[in-house]
């Protein structure tokens, strides 16, 4: 089997200090994206456990897999979950969910939970689309912009580049910063053409790091152009898989001249976390 450079390791995390049996509400949010799927379990208003897995060939299995991974080291059974909200690209096809909510609303809610009520602008860089979201102090969406056609600037585009240069995708960001001088960005926003441009640059004698730097900065520039359509209001934060690529994020922040609020524990679970917060709200509302 050949190396798959786009692969990253799936993982799960469990809160060691919390006892779910004592919680009044136990709910989950599942985000089935185009590339990765996450599940978050919320015990009362605290994260109890979460997972981040690769999306498989169909949404129901991907959702089951993500939830299974999150629950693996816990003694929670699926029937213990009192309410489940599904979100993401595959949200309408999640068998265990009680309700589907769009990823835009969920990302805003999740970023608001992790980053606090001062978050106003969220950039979600997902596997196959880019979203710019404005929200109010409660995490309610006030404006959004979705770029869902072109792979440029998305995780999928980054995978194509990682495969081409045979660089593990998790190393792309750091390598792109490891250059003596920032090279000019690649001229094509289209991934297909950027790919042939990259081959040309390698033949010209550019190092892989330089090509990655040129690609990351083109990607950052494109994202900034997109964000300018809705404007940036502070505080600003970035969610989604590409938020972990420091080569792209540092260039975006430099061009925008803003800081981003770091999201703990994990910027990639914002959608699933937001879905779980919605789930808790809906559960409490139904009890009244």
């Amino acid at each position: 089997m050949t190396t798959e450079y786009f692969r990253w390791t799936e993982y799960a995390w469990k809160n060691p200090d919390k006892d779910w049996q004592k919680a009044d509400t136990l709910v989950a949010g599942i985000d089935v994206g185009s590339v990765s799927s996450q599940a978050v379990v919320l015990a009362d208003d605290e994260i109890y456990c979460y997972s981040n897995a690769r999306t498989g060939s169909n949404s129901p299995d991907s959702a089951k897999n993500a939830l299974g991974m999150a629950l693996k080291d816990t003694d929670i059974k699926q029937e213990n979950l009192q309410f489940v909200v599904g979100t993401g690209y595959g949200r309408v096809n999640i068998p265990m969910s009680n309700k589907a909510i769009t990823e835009i609303a969920c990302h805003a809610r999740g970023a608001n939970y992790m980053g606090g009520p001062t978050i106003r602008t969220i950039l979600d860089m997902g596997g196959q689309d880019l979203k710019g979201i404005h929200c109010d102090e409660r995490g309610k969406v006030t404006q959004f912009l979705m770029n869902d056609k072109c792979a440029a600037g998305t995780g999928r585009g980054m995978e194509v580049m990682a495969e081409l240069l045979q660089v593990p995708i998790v190393d792309v960001g750091q390598m792109s910063l490891d250059v003596e001088e920032e090279p000019p960005p690649v001229s094509s926003t289209c991934v297909i053409f950027a790919k042939s441009e990259a081959i040309g640059l390698l033949r010209k004698g550019w190092t892989k790091n330089m090509v990655l730097a040129a690609y990351c900065s083109a990607m950052a520039h494109r994202v900034v152009g997109l964000l300018e359509r809705i404007g940036i209001e502070k505080d600003f934060t970035i969610t989604g898989g590409i938020s972990k690529n420091i080569g792209v994020t540092s260039r975006i922040l430099k061009e925008l001249k803003v800081d981003s609020v770091p999201l703990k524990p994990d910027p990639q679970i914002a959608g699933a976390l937001g879905a779980s917060v919605f789930a808790r709200d809906l559960l409490l509302k139904s009890r009244k």
Partner: peptide, 16 residues
């Protein structure tokens, strides 16, 4: 898909 990168994945899943 209206993007060649995404159309490629669609083609692959149609083959599957």
């Amino acid at each position: 898909a209206t993007c060649a990168v995404f159309a490629e994945s669609e083609v692959v899943s149609l083959i599957h």
